[in-house]
Design a protein around this nucleic acid. Sequence first.
RNA 1: GCGCUCGUAGUUCAGUUGGAUAGAAUGCCAGACUACGAAUCUGGAGGUCGGGGGUUCGAAUCCCUCCGAGCGCGCCA
Length: 564
Amino acid sequence: MKSRHLAALSIVEDALQSRLADAARSVGENASEIPRVTLPPTRDPSHGDFATPVALSAAKLWKCDPMKVASALADHRDGGIAGVASLEAARPGFVNVRMAPGFWSGVIAEVLERGDDYGRSDALAHTGPVLIEFTSANPTGPLNVVQGRSGSLGATLVEMFRFAGATTASETYVNDAGAQLDTLAASLYARYAALFGVDVPFPEEGYPGDYVIDVAHKLRDRDGDKWLHAGPDERRRALGKFGRDVIVEEQRADMERFGVHFDVWFSEATLHDGGAIDDVVADLQTRGFAYEKDGAIWLRSTDCGDDRDRVLRRSDGRPTYLAADAAYHRDKLRRGYKYLVNILGPDHHGYIARLSALVAALGHPGSIEVLLAQQVTLKRGDETVAMSKRAGNTVTLAEVMDEVGVDAARFFFIERAPESHLVFDLALAVEHSQKNPVFYVQYGHARIASILRKAAETGKSALLERARAAADVAHLGHPAEIALARRLSDFERTVVDAVNDRAPHRIAEYARNVAGDFHGFYTGCIVLTDDDVLTSARLSLSIAAKTVLASSLRILGVSAPDSM
RNA sequence: GCGCUCGUAGUUCAGUUGGAUAGAAUGCCAGACUACGAAUCUGGAGGUCGGGGGUUCGAAUCCCUCCGAGCGCGCCA
């Protein structure tokens, strides 16, 4: 399902690869190792359409002159290569490839033919099914900005994997077991009692946010004063569960509003209740990956790359968080997932080694990968927005969405490499100007939609039909037209490379570049002219650009408006 | 002390796994509409890629060392 123009490039790569093999034979015994030919697009058009540095790496391996190898690759004596207009060797040893006329206009025809499917591939079909877990949170409060970032990251990665042909599911893990739920219950009880004028001291480490008061109102609406008279154990359990359910629903609503959907919300509590944790610990023990010491049971994680062993079951018999994770990840693997990706918050990198060790101990070494969503600093212009967990003034994802909108939030969170610290300027995100990359990209899409509307309104509907059929694309040739076509041709490769490198920010960069190339084309080439053939050709290019813009924005979870 | 992430233009960041003259946005300076949306475009200035050493035809990228920032090192979750 590779696109036609990528298939055409493969033919060139294969031809060069075989010439390289011939060159190796002529060099002799030094040339036992033959590097793979890759053919990336050139940055500088004067270097042709594509260029390979393979002669340079071959020359290094073979200890000979790079130009000699490059010349052998560019040699025409045994005939040309299909689809190639010219080959040339360039110092220090690049081979520049110029494609035959019609190559770039062919790309436009292909985009129009495949529409929303253009750029899709089956490059990663062999890797799945993949399960991506992200934004796993304590159900004790609203989602914060870092969780927004990991939501944006995870959802975009899921879309990218799917676009590249991998079967992929999204999942989040609800940490609804452990002490934090008791703390939530105690906080909720204090707020709830206050509604009846009963003074219950607020717990020392309780959750100070106002949202707990909202939950208390909901509890009173449902149950009246019932819990003022209940026993402490029953009350703690009931209030913990009530608070958990209300808050998880709010988190789910926030995520849906954010355009992030999870196929599964997995409850940690179900692992404790169903005996899965006891079972997995016993299993690890029988298989020799866990042992008893000092009255506790330890995972032998040092065998799998961790720097120390980790407790699974405490000496008082209670399982640790890691034990629950053992059960959870065994469950994931038993559900048939071949590869697991977990996105964790910035303060959890110490957990990576033991998670990998854990999955290895479960019998699937190397099948989990952990990505970190680094921290986010919020600012508003020059002013840094203070966020302190202790003071209870953390900024929530919902507040960010309220202030800048979903599109800007999704785009800003995804715009930077996951592992780099992010400075999020709320003032910039709401600005409707060239400074704001979201609007720059969306404006490109709206501008094209406007041209298409204009074409229809001015009686050019027949030309629009010709354009959709790519009838006249052979007439494209202006440098701005070729630059745009080149960019569109790079969509599939960009997605596949970006997903392989776990670099979703490159899709944002790509979308910005498509928009930029379109704006350049728009300025340099008038679309709606008196020349029907030229108009039809440029309409084809515009429609193709709109299609690719819309597809990249869809991957990013950002809307592609027809007018703004 | 050990570990993880990072250090690139005034600022915010890319840099496709070692390739051609280190790129973009923003900010600054100078320009461009009597046509399809100026929320746009064109040009210019701006760099010791944290410092130093090494590997080679070639290093922001790999190795060593030092400096700096953030985070983590629990029978917490």
